[in-house]
């Protein structure tokens, strides 16, 4: 099963984890990305995520398909927030399930690394006295 979503609302991580995996799976693995309070030169009040939504969903879907083809995983869930995300909240949740943990870990690592390279989503750090787009280097 494949779940791909962009959403403004907070991610219900526990519910997503509970809904992923089958009785054939021996491992359900997750990655949660959270904004850091001190990621820049000054304290971050919150982050703002902008997505090119149609293309972002397509790219996330491609990544999930590649992971499902490359490793024997059964479920793959990728949810990314848009809009305001406060430090400590989940900005992204990835969950995969697999019969064995090794392939699950490998797939999870591939998914987050590829999301950060190809999915058209950008974060802006918002400070008490201004804001700045964060542009990861390619």
């Amino acid at each position: 099963m494949k779940t791909i979503r962009l959403q403004n609302d907070p991610i219900e991580c526990a519910a997503a984890l509970a809904a992923t995996g089958t009785v054939e799976d021996g491992a359900v693995l997750s990655f949660t990305g959270t904004p850091r309070r001190d990621s820049a030169k000054r304290p971050v009040e919150h982050l703002f995520y902008e997505a090119y939504e149609g293309m972002a969903l397509k790219e996330m879907d491609k990544i999930a398909d590649e992971a499902l083809a490359a490793w024997p995983i059964t479920d793959c869930l990728i949810i990314h927030r848009t809009g305001r995300v406060d430090p400590g909240q989940a900005s992204i949740l990835i969950v995969v399930s697999a019969r064995h943990r090794d392939e699950g870990f490998a797939a999870l690592r591939f998914i987050i690394d590829t999301v950060k390279k190809t999915v058209p989503i950008w974060k802006k750090e918002v400070y008490i006295d201004g804001s700045e787009w964060v542009s990861d280097r390619v």
């Binding site: 990305g33 900005s91 787009w133 390619v138």
Partner: peptide, 10 residues
């Protein structure tokens, strides 16, 4: 045609 900077999601 979309123009954008290097992505920074996650």
């Amino acid at each position: 045609l979309a123009l954008f900077p290097p992505v920074s999601g996650g």
